[in-house]
Design a protein around this nucleic acid. Structure first.
Lengths: 196, 196
DNA sequence: TTTGATTTTGAGCAGTTGTTCAAGTTAAAA
DNA sequence: TTTTAACTTGAACAACTGCTCAAAATCAAA
């Protein structure tokens, strides 16, 4: 039985993810995808079922990559809170030129999607929630290491961080004001690190 | 010369704005628009030139409505800073059920648009900048009335407010957590009102 | 080498897209 | 009443959409 896939599934998903991230769900045609991924329609539809199916995989790929970057930055910095700050600076500022879009792919998804794609909207919301949860865990770790005040509430701070991250990235998209955004990141973490 | 418009231009723009706000630029077809606005293609194209032309008018309409709401809330509250807080609470929380989308139409626009619609992207960015400028002026007024500390910087605080507003609205879209969002609005303004 | 299930291919379908334009309608001016 | 110029109408166009499926290609097992 010839069941050897000729193509690398993970690679296909990554290429699709980069295109969807850049152009959005409605803005990306199946022909754009076929070209980016170098597969004919039949192969794509047998592997992913539909454009929606491929987009869902792309969302998960984006989310996993982002989580991996957070862990990497925490390792590099050697501390949870500094790692989180480095992660945010990286995602918002440093990676801007290499990324397909200034904005978070999940934010672009919840901005664009409506009730006509309920599954994709829900998936995006779930992945955002998971992102918040990983921030909560980082903050809990920071707290147990004494990097964060013991009377801080990691869960509501995680929500705050999420709001800042969404806000900063989107603000940068509208203003191009890198200096102001770097200042705002600095302020946010000075607040967090202060005994408060 | 029969140059009496049979339709109310402002009303047409408003109806188009509500539809574009809900479904986005790519997500709204010209037939959706024709139906919402009750005009045939020829009339729309002679009045606005293209789908892009109508979208640009819709963006300006949205922006003007939002500015009017800010002024209204400042009047109602009788003070700039409380007015700004009331405005943000209104836009983020109270108006949520009546609005076509949880999110800011300008944020949805900059999220969705790419280089294939450079004029629309630029217009969205300009209107966001104008929004920030009106926040700056409100904060300057608050400062001159002693509601805001005299060593605060209205210009960078306006950027901060803009980040919060974008972040909070989008966060609500992803989480539905109204309680947390109201708490974050409260915190933001306690910080601003404190002598700091 | 032959077999046969699995995968890949790409022409093509039915529906939708943004837009045009000739024909018809309107109402003020002559 | 007739003229005239602006406005409205809606059928139609060419391009594009997501997707299907019969035919061809592939390769492990017999």
């Amino acid at each position: 039985m010839a069941n050897v896939a000729k193509y690398d599934r993970a690679d296909v998903i990554k290429k699709a993810m980069l295109l969807f991230w850049e152009k959005g769900f409605n803005g990306t045609s199946t022909r754009d995808l076929q070209q980016a991924v170098d597969l004919r329609p039949g192969s794509i539809y047998s592997a992913f079922g539909s454009k929606e199916g491929l987009f869902k995989e792309a969302l998960r790929c984006y989310s996993a990559n982002t989580y991996a970057l957070l862990q990497e930055k925490i390792q590099q910095q050697g501390s949870p809170l500094s790692g989180l700050q480095a992660f945010i600076h990286c995602v918002v500022v440093s990676n801007r030129s290499s990324a397909p879009s200034d904005m978070c792919m999940l934010v672009k998804a919840v901005a664009e999607l409506t009730d006509s794609n309920p599954e994709l909207l829900q998936e995006s919301q779930i992945l955002m929630k998971k992102g918040e949860l990983s921030f909560t865990r980082v903050l809990q770790e920071a707290q147990s290491q004494g990097e964060l005040s013991s009377n801080a509430d990691p869960q509501s701070l995680a929500k705050y961080i999420q709001v800042q991250l969404i806000g900063l990235r989107t603000y940068l998209r509208t203003s191009n004001d890198v200096v102001a955004v770097e200042q705002l990141i600095e302020n946010t973490f000075q607040m967090l690190k202060a005994p408060h």
